Simulated scan of single mutants.
Amino acid sequence: MTETLTLRALNRATLARQLLLERADVPVPEAVERLCGLQAQEPKPPFLGLWTRLEGFEVADLLGAVRDRALVRATMMRGTLHLMSAPDYLALRAPLQPILNGGLRVLGNRAEGLDLDKVLPAARALLNEKPRTFNEIRALLQEEFPEVNDRALGFAVRMCLPLVMVPTEDRWGFPRTSEFTLAESWLGDAPAPAPADSPDALVLRYLAAFGPASAADAQEWSGFAKLGEVLERLRPQLRVFSDEKGRELFDLPDAPQPDEDTPAPARFLPEFDNLVLAHADRTRIIAAEHRPSLTTKNLRVRSTFLWDGFAAGLWEMERKRKVATLRLLPFGKLTKRALNELTAEGERLLRFAEPDAAEHVVTTAEA
């Protein structure tokens, strides 16, 4: 008989994989591998995401790993920028290529005249000369292909070539003017991502970081359709559960399954955190009635805070002169204990994110 996992059991299992039941004392590259990457549309959120997961994390720990090329920032799942370990990037980038190719459909009429067989070799030649910003890449390609939309040229290169961003001396490592280079150039002797026919490795890495999960969950995270066929093929090497809704869930046989009563401390998740994006059914982290508030009209994924393992509200941070403020926006009334622990954790986060502020203040909006 298939074991049924309660909502709290799913919550605690996912938090354990995501290093959110207790801070881990592991090197940054290992942590990023265990998380199967950190979404990184903007430079700062991965630093905050690692701070909330790792014991004694410092900004320099992540910057050092990126500059040592143990980590890369590159286009990955769902066509978005992720911070990945170099081995994961090399192993998982190729299985994603069909999804990235499919992303070109959003160009619509702007893709008129776009010939990838000509554009991509031209872009590769430009990047073999030296790293370049996307403004440079678009301008140079437009000179060679004047009849093609410049944004279409740039988007095709971003999605169809294995590129990584070159870190700078900026505080968060990647300013808006960051340059890109070919992965094989940046990673030296490491092989370039090679063509791969199967997403099996990608699915197994997903389950390690976010399981137990359904086929629909894995599809939501990866962008792949028909992952049920992959999971069916992998079934003999997986554990199978069901949730309280009767959905079939898959997991690795040796993955952690904490007791559902395991304490879950107050935690702050940054914008775009994968924890709130990695499942089709996200009730293991956030109640369905609160899910719409996660995303703004311009598709920004807002910062959330966890209490007892579940998203209990949103948070915002601002800096005015020498005062750094973190504002809690709870979904409902917080208990005194929750408010005290969230305030203490919020003050620690402010001291990390704004170390030179003279004052660090946590405030709470009315629920």
Score class of each variant (00 low, 15 high):
Q219V: 12
V301A: 06
Q219N: 14
S293V: 09
R267I: 04
S303F: 00
E271F: 05
Q219C: 15
K245N: 12
L231H: 02
D254I: 11
K226N: 14
D243M: 01
P256D: 10
R267G: 01
F224D: 05
R235C: 09
E232A: 12
R267L: 04
L227T: 02
T304L: 12
L275H: 01
L277N: 04
R233L: 11
F250V: 06
S303Y: 04
A255W: 00
L294A: 08
E229A: 14
L227H: 00
V230R: 00
S242M: 14
T295V: 15
G223R: 04
L234F: 07
L252H: 07
E232F: 01
P236V: 14
L227N: 01
L252G: 09
K297E: 13
D259V: 09
R267Y: 02
R300W: 10
V240E: 13
A280S: 08
R284P: 04
S222Y: 03
I286K: 01
K226Y: 14
L252M: 13
L277T: 06
R233C: 13
L294G: 04
L231M: 03
N298C: 09
A255V: 05
F241C: 00
E220F: 13
E271G: 05
A225H: 14
I285Y: 03
E260S: 13
L299K: 12
